[in-house]
Write a protein that binds this DNA or RNA. Structure first.
Lengths: 194, 194
DNA sequence: CGCGGGTTTGATGATGCTCAAGCCCGGTGG
DNA sequence: CCACCGGGCTTGAGCATCATCAAACCCGCG
């Protein structure tokens, strides 16, 4: 179970991970299973953990007064589910995070993760690269939302994250793109015809 | 001139900045002035510098085939103008960055900045916090673009970045929000009436 | 067989875009 | 001092895109 995590860390870093460092890491991460629709985080809570997904898929979303879900992130294997803002600023989250599929995750408390990063050079290298990737990904999505139409954003997602389109039902993808299910259905039907 | 930069770094870090560290920093940052509309980066170039804005304002945007500008970022005093993705991945940028106002900036090469971060603990602390802020800001904007209408996004910006609204003309703000100038004009006129 | 979750299709309407014209205001030059 | 110009803002008419509401369909599963 922890192998996946260690392999993941190694893939990010040129620094070696030593045996006792691996032990230390294992001590602070605890395996947790989520059933479908089980919450990892609910609106109003302060998020204090990050979840590394070993197997499964989760989603992060808001619920409007009218009860509409707006999905702002999707997570699958080797991703981290967490509300960054809430964790870092210790403020109540405006999001829900739940499991879309049955999910095995390794949870780590923020304070423990900080400790590990300070103590293990490989993890410092990892977190810096991860943060960079987050920024690049986020910038791309912002840029897409400003420049592209609904249709173009769908095809952009097909290029940048085909794994999402295979894995999640269409109405989830639609919400993630900020359009509604019927519109996405029509966009797709326009192109299936040829 | 360098005072602003040093003060800025200090505001981010609990680690002290020593005299010889300050000397080192000054050696790698060079003062550059930009006239209005002068480019810091053009589409197709690889971005190798970051610009700390001491005084002035810059913008980052794409130009579509039809010649429309889509502004994806605005920078003012104490911000960093740079194409993160191009810098980190060494890929040609899809963006232009130019000065909107006359601007004094301190430029640093990516490799020099890396060197400084490795050498000066206060700067490591700074860059980590900065990256975190970038992620939080970007997430907020993504979330806004999915959840909110054009009108709501404008009022959201009024809350989160009132300094932009005062500082930039309306058509720039409209582009930054991903709506067009006429629409923003109408949104505002609806509310001035009371 | 019936149910639940997901997708599709159609009719209608709101939101925001396009194109076109006019206005406002500060700066420049005759 | 006035005329003109450019940049920015506003307003209107018509249109495209996307959302909403409603209904039907599809399919895997108990």
């Amino acid at each position: 179970m922890y192998d996946a995590l260690i392999r993941y860390f190694r893939s990010y870093t040129s620094n070696a991970l030593l045996g006792d460092e691996i032990d230390l890491i294992q001590r602070f991460f605890s395996l947790t299973k989520f059933k479908k629709r089980e919450f990892f985080l609910q609106e109003g809570e302060v998020c204090t953990y990050s979840a590394f997904i070993v197997k499964g898929a989760m989603r992060q979303y808001t619920v409007s007064e009218k009860g509409e879900e707006h999905i702002i992130k999707l997570f699958i294997e080797n991703w981290w589910a967490s509300d960054y803002e809430s964790v870092l600023k210790k403020t109540p989250s405006i999001y829900f995070i739940d499991a879309w599929e049955e999910t095995d995750a390794l949870l780590v408390a923020k304070t423990d993760l900080m400790y590990l990063i300070n103590r293990i050079p490989a993890l410092l290298e990892w977190i810096r690269k991860l943060d960079n990737n987050f920024v690049i990904d986020a910038d791309r999505r912002i840029s897409a939302s400003i420049r592209l139409s609904a249709e173009e954003r769908y095809f952009d997602l097909e290029k940048t994250h085909p794994e999402f389109i295979q894995r999640f039902p269409q109405h989830i993808i639609a919400s993630y793109l900020g359009i509604n299910r019927e519109t996405l259905s029509r966009i797709r039907s326009r192109y299936v015809k040829r």
